[in-house]
Design a binder for these strands. Structure first.
Lengths: 134, 134
DNA sequence: CTTGACTTGCGAAAGATTATTATTTACGAT
DNA sequence: ATCGTAAATAATAATCTTTCGCAAGTCAAG
């Protein structure tokens, strides 16, 4: 199976890289649609899957409803806001997480995912305000 | 708001504890249905939500399609099989993960979730076998 | 026993993702 | 440059998981 670089695929890749964020499929769909009004949401999903299989992007199966996609391939972790679900990158040295090397429970370990949860600065303010009401 | 201990709720809690696993809502539904054939799936979902709000169980928002629920409340991490999606507990000392204390990117950190991915023993065998075919 | 808030069961709806299918397109070979 | 064909697309239907709305049922306090 050879993968072609179609206009749609190229555009999806470009917009994901441009955003530098962690977009969901439909957010990306909205952005791409500005340039290609006739693109289908299914195409976005399909290409995100294909690109992620091809290791050209990364699928984040982080908590929450929607999957998100990241154009940054280098290993890194994420921090996300429990209130507004914003996701940001987190640079932790690999030395910051000690893992059972090689095996644990008979598993062959292929990776790890560290997700830090918290309140982002914006939501902290919001909550401080609404406390008065409560 | 007071929460009642209805038969359904009790049964859901009991079956989740009995399994010691990490069941999805519909797996739990199937089990409970053996004892209460008329129970509704929505009731299972509702109660899992309520019990998890009440800190009587824990909702795992781990990668994958379905949410899973855990009756073990003590802090622990999880390892899951990329092939068969089985989830198991992982006991790591808190010292095994170093986190930026207090703040990172302006966030107030409320927790962390570590997910180790790998191939479980069963799937390792399956894959070794199928390699011959490829 | 009665009341009223909490719950249930059921069906429908919502949200996210995947599958189907007819049509179009990219790209290597001619 | 043109052709043939496998791969990709658009549009829509379908699926899967989870939630919602509401009438009817149930529990616990008085």
């Amino acid at each position: 199976m050879q993968l072609r670089m179609t206009n749609q695929r190229e555009m999806i890749l470009r917009e994901l890289k441009k955003s530098k964020g962690h977009l969901s499929a439909d957010e990306l769909y909205e952005r791409v649609k500005k340039f290609m009004p006739r693109i289908s949401l299914a195409t976005v999903y399909r290409n995100l899957e294909i690109l992620s299989d091809a290791r050209m992007i990364r699928k984040l199966e982080i908590s929450g409803r929607q999957k998100r996609y990241d154009s940054v391939l280098v290993d890194h972790d994420h921090i996300y806001c429990v209130e507004c679900h914003r996701i940001e990158n987190l640079e932790l040295g690999t030395s910051d997480v000690k893992l059972p090397v090689g095996e644990a429970k008979g598993y062959t370990i292929t990776g790890r995912r560290l997700e830090v949860t918290g309140l982002c600065p914006v939501c902290q303010k919001k909550i401080t305000k609404s406390k008065k009401i409560k």
